[in-house]
């Protein structure tokens, strides 16, 4: 089980801020494919992953990164702080 968090418009499109996901995905990209296959709202949120960023256990990462030992995955658009 892995905690998956969504922020900003990704959260709005999917309709929840976080959920527990039972997955065997080896990488972030595989997890994204599993989520997209679930329901249209996921497919809409992940339609263009080049517009998204991912953090693994609260560190910025890549979609190609492995999920070994990762407890928390977060998806969000590019950040707009400052």
């Amino acid at each position: 089980m892995i905690d998956v968090l969504y922020f900003a418009w990704v959260r709005e499109r999917i309709g929840c801020p976080r959920e527990r996901v039972d997955t065997d995905a080896a990488t972030v990209a595989e997890l994204v494919e599993e989520l997209k296959a679930r329901e249209d709202r996921y497919a809409a949120a992940f339609a263009d992953v080049s517009a998204l960023r991912v953090a693994l256990d609260q560190e910025l990462s890549e979609f190609s990164a492995p999920l070994d030992g990762v407890r928390e995955v977060a998806f969000f658009p590019p950040m707009t702080g400052g």
Partner: peptide
Amino acid sequence: MDYLKSRAPFWK
């Protein structure tokens, strides 16, 4: 400032 703008997880 440059890093806070695009590396700190805030969304406006």
